[in-house]
Structure formats: structure tokens, C-alpha cells
Amino acid sequence: MIELSASDPFAGLHLPLVHGAARLDSVPPVRITAIAPLPGQTEALASALGGFPAPGEVLDTTLRLVWVGRGQAFAFGEGLPEGLERHAALSDQSDGWAGAQLEGADAQAVLARLVAMDLRALAVPSSVRTLLGHLPLLLVKQSETAFDLWTYRSMAGSLSHELDRAMRMVAARRALA
């Protein structure tokens, strides 16, 4: 019998990165459970969970519930109520995603280099499924200057590469002014 040790998806990628008024750091590991209510079960599920997010919504109950796609939400954190499987398909996604937080006065300017969406228009908090460059992206807007960026675990390197490049250029532009 062996004991396995865990490793971080951003291992070896030199986070945090700081360039100008933007900082990128990894989000600490957290339990993520994908919850997809079965047809006709959304209400029952919502009452068990204290709500279920509509498209784009982030609900803070005892857990953080983040809408992540058609009929699916991620529950961030431990302590999921028992018996949810009667109402929903559940799958563990804690290890499938790599999350990094981009924060700072230039966070939006950096994301404007990579995400084809007007992030100013999003509510706080809210979630969006889109692309970062060519990477799949789950974006959670935490504030006007802080965004959690989640992509597939295997693409953590590309995520940090893209953000690093954009952060450097935005910082260099600022230095020109």
C-alpha cells in the first residue's frame, strides 16, 4: 500500500505573477461538485440546496453555487447536503479544473486582450462560460478588479502563458503613458 501525495495544477509555473497593476495567483484547492438537476427536479434540488443558480448566476448559500453550463452548476466547498442524488446527477470535478485569480486595477484591461466579452457589463458576483484565447474558460467575476479564471487542469500552463503575456503588455503600455 502506498500513500499518494497531491500536486498543484500550476506547479512549476512560477505563480504568483505580478506585472504592473495586475496580479495572478492560483486559487487554493477546493472541493468542486458538479450538480445537474434531473428533469423536473430543479425546484426540489433548490430547496435542498437553498437555491439553484440560473444562467450567469452565483449564489452564496452555505456553499458557493456557480452556474457553469446548460442545466449545471458547480458547488464550491465541503458540506453538500445528503440525498441530492435523488434530484440531480453529481460528479466530482475538484481535480478537473485549474483556477487562478486575476486581480488589480488592470485586471479588466488584461482580460480585454483575451476574452471577447464586455466584462464591465457583468454583475458582481456572476459567472460566464466563454473562451480565454482558445482555452475553455469559466470566469467568475468577484469584483470589478478581481476575476477567478478556471480552465481544464491540463491547460493550466497555457492559461498562465496567455495571461502572463497580456499582463506584460498592458503593464508596458502603462509605462509608456
Partner: peptide, 9 residues
């Protein structure tokens, strides 16, 4: 019925 990709997990 529900589908979920768990490749990366």
C-alpha cells in the same frame, strides 16, 4: 439523464 465530461478530473 445527465451528461458530464470528467476527463480532466
Amino acid at each position: 439523464l445527465r451528461l458530464a465530461s470528467v476527463t480532466e478530473n
